[in-house]
Amino acid sequence: MDEKLTVGIADMKMVKGEGTLITYALGSCIGICLYDPAVRLAAMVHIMLPLNMEAGRKTPMKYADTGIRETLRQMEAQGALRGRITAKIAGGAKMFEVGGNGLLGAIGQRNIESVHMVLKKEGIRLLREEVGGTVARTLLFDAANGQGRIRSYGKPEVIL
C-alpha cells in the first residue's frame, strides 16, 4: 500500500522508494519537490516566505532559502547526490487583492523568484513548474517515479 505523508506549512518530509508526499492549501506558499531518481529519494518542502532574514530562526522550512538548503543537506545525508537532484515547484498564487504598493499582495511572486534563485545557486535543475495565478493548489509527489500532480478546485488535475 502506498504510504501518504502530509507536509504541513513550514514543514518538510522525505520518503525513499515508495510513498507519496502531499501538501494542501498552496496559495502564495510554494511546494518544492526535490528528487534523486537513482536512489528514488523524494522530498517536499512547503515554504511560506522568500528569505530568512534573522539568524537563528527555529523554523528553516518556512523560508525558501534555508528550507531548500536544509532539505538538500538532509537528502545528501540519505545518499542523494547534488548532481542528480531535480526540482518541480507549485504555488506562488496571488490570493488577495491588496491596495497600494504593499509587498503583501506580491508575496507569491516574491516566493517564486526566491525559489528560482536558490535552486539556481544550489545547482538544482528545475524540470517543471505550475506557479502564479489566483487559485490554491494541492500538490502530490510520488517517490516511486518522481511524478507530481496538482489538484485545484474546479480544474482538471495537472501532471507536474
Score class of each variant (00 low, 15 high):
M1Q: 15
M1D: 12
M1L: 09
D2L: 06
E3I: 13
L5Y: 05
T6W: 11
I9H: 12
A10V: 06
A10M: 11
D11Y: 03
D11H: 01
G19V: 06
G19W: 15
G19Y: 10
T20A: 13
A25V: 14
G27S: 14
S28W: 13
S28I: 11
G31L: 06
G31Q: 01
G31I: 00
I32A: 01
C33V: 05
D36I: 07
A38I: 11
R40S: 14
A43Q: 07
P50A: 04
L51S: 13
M53N: 09
E54T: 04
A55I: 11
G56F: 08
M61G: 09
K62W: 04
A64W: 03
D65S: 07
T66K: 07
I68R: 00
R69A: 12
R69L: 11
E70M: 08
R73C: 14
Q74W: 12
M75K: 04
E76C: 14
E76F: 03
L81D: 11
T86E: 11
A87E: 01
I89G: 00
I89F: 03
G91D: 01
G91F: 00
A93H: 03
A93F: 03
K94H: 15
E97Y: 05
G100I: 09
L103E: 11
L104D: 14
G105E: 09
G108L: 01
I112Q: 06
I112H: 03
V115E: 00
V115R: 00
V115I: 01
L119M: 02
K120P: 04
K121H: 14
E122N: 07
G123H: 02
G123F: 03
R125E: 13
L126G: 12
E129L: 07
V131G: 10
T134L: 15
T134E: 12
T134Y: 14
A136C: 10
R137D: 02
T138R: 09
T138D: 05
N145Q: 12
N145V: 10
G146I: 03
G146P: 04
G148W: 00
Y153I: 14
Y153P: 08
I159S: 06
